[in-house]
Design a binder for these strands. Structure first.
Length: 403
RNA sequence: GUGAGAUUAGCUCAGCUGGUUAGAGCACUGGUUUGUGGUGCCGGGGGUCGCGGGUUCGAAUCCCGUAUCUCACCCCA
């Protein structure tokens, strides 16, 4: 038997219902915030991700589905959504056009990782990107949008907030931290030593308890922000408070992608295992310029759909549509004909075999039909239909032409 | 990439230290003799016990390998 590739799942029945319900709910919220749908290719030039996400990240250095296509192009399946949207934004010359451009997207992302709960090789994200707004109000608006989407889906969360600083305050801080950790020598774990080379800020988040003891006195970025970043962060907090969004400051929160600056946030859930991040995002003011566009401030977020599916509370499925069946072989053509008419407006399930009434009622139940219509010899003779409302438990016999 | 556990019917699982034709519940299907469901009764189909080797008179059961899943690390949404 041929099986799907590792970490690549089929989405069907209940999962698919929740999947589309989420996409629809999230899209509606994004639309109300003034965002427009954008679809970008699944396949992009590898260089796009190397430059935007950053060579140092695991995502780019070891998790990409990368290959050479028949035209000798170095390409890869997108591991995340932002880079493609930024590329499209620049390619369509919207950076030069100026003004504000707001997009949302959803689709498959690919990372060659070891699968576990909430982590797949092909997974789906819903995300938004906003270009041209420098104000921290937009950052707050992003967070409120995630809040609205999660609330609409009945999902509880915890919001963690941090500021990653900017070109002015981040690099000096990073040097200070590296210096601090290097002074500890080999007392810290080897993961931390590796992080020093790749993403030094990550050491603060190390789960090793002995490492944590050494880091209690480590310098914190939040105390080393420049005036501009400091002001924005304070403002962001007050906007969220004004709008009743609860948050906690997590000075160890780091975004794994190199392009983030200033606002960084993560929505987490304690109900889905160790892969607890259900949404993450922040500001990336330098990325457009970095990808050869005209400098444009930007902010965005992405949500992991598979992780959310476990948490979504769907509205209850109610009785809906018709079930039509026959108790006599000769009535089957009529069943088909009636269903074709009714299907112009309603959901109709039919059975091609003659069965007794009990079977039909059971089958109608099973497909969650509101009405069960049955044609027997009596009905056939009188040109009538027997129809039962399965919800209100009432029944009636009506003329075929009145159906 | 590292460590641990799992894999038996469509699903959830039982199957003792290796011993006849591998079981249950649910699901599916047929009947319940013209006529009332989601919640009755009686029957039926369905498994190369993840895959490949090995040990043995004999393997679902023991050993090795491999794949996948789960959990944790790592990473991140």
């Amino acid at each position: 038997m041929i099986k799907s590739l590792r970490g690549m799942n089929d989405i069907l029945s209940d999962d698919y219902e929740r999947f589309t319900y989420f996409i629809q709910t999230a899209s509606n919220v994004a639309t109300r915030y003034g965002f427009h749908f954008i679809q970008t290719p699944l396949l992009e030039e590898t260089a796009l991700f190397k430059r935007s996400v950053g060579d140092s990240s695991d995502i780019v250095s070891k998790e990409m589905y990368q290959f050479t296509d028949k035209g000798e192009n170095d390409v890869c399946l997108r591991p995340e959504g932002t880079a493609g949207v930024v590329r499209a934004f620049i390619q369509k010359k919207l950076d030069k056009a100026g003004g504000i451009h707001r997009f949302f997207y959803h689709g498959a992302m690919f990372r060659y990782e070891r699968p576990q709960k909430g982590r797949l090789r092909q997974f789906h994200q819903f995300g938004v990107e906003s270009f041209g707004v420098e104000s921290v109000y937009e950052d707050a608006s992003m967070i409120m949008m995630v809040h609205d989407i999660l609330v609409a889906c009945g999902i509880g969360y915890k919001l963690q907030l941090n500021s990653l600083g900017c070109k002015t305050c981040m690099p000096p801080y990073r040097q200070e931290l590296i210096h601090f950790v290097k002074n500890l020598g080999d007392k810290v774990c080897k993961d931390c030593l590796r992080r020093l080379e790749t993403n030094p800020i990550r050491v603060l988040d190390c789960k090793n308890t002995t490492c944590q003891q050494f880091y209690t006195n480590a310098p914190k970025l939040i105390n080393n922000l420049c005036d501009d970043c400091e002001d924005d962060f304070a403002k962001l907090k007050s906007i969220l408070e004004d709008n009743n969004i609860e948050y906690e400051i997590d000075t160890n929160l780091v975004r794994g992608l190199d392009y983030y600056s200033k606002t960084a946030f993560e929505f987490i859930s304690d109900k889905i295992g160790s892969q607890s991040a259900i949404a993450g995002g922040g500001r990336y003011d330098k990325l457009v310029e970095f990808l050869d566009g005209k400098a444009t401030p930007a902010v965005g977020f992405a949500m992991g759909i598979e992780r959310l599916l476990e948490l979504i509370k769907m509205p209850h499925n109610t009785h809906n549509g018709y079930y039509i069946g026959a108790m006599d072989e000769e009535a089957i053509p009529l069943v088909v004909k009636l269903s074709q008419g009714k299907r112009k407006t309603k959901k109709v399930t039919i059975d091609y075999k003659a069965r007794n009434l009990q079977k039909h009622l059971k089958a109608a139940d099973k497909v969650n039909a509101r009405f069960c219509v049955v044609i027997g010899s009596n009905e056939l003779k009188n040109s009538t239909l027997w129809i039962k409302d399965l919800k209100n438990k009432t029944e009636d016999t009506i003329k075929v032409k009145d159906f």
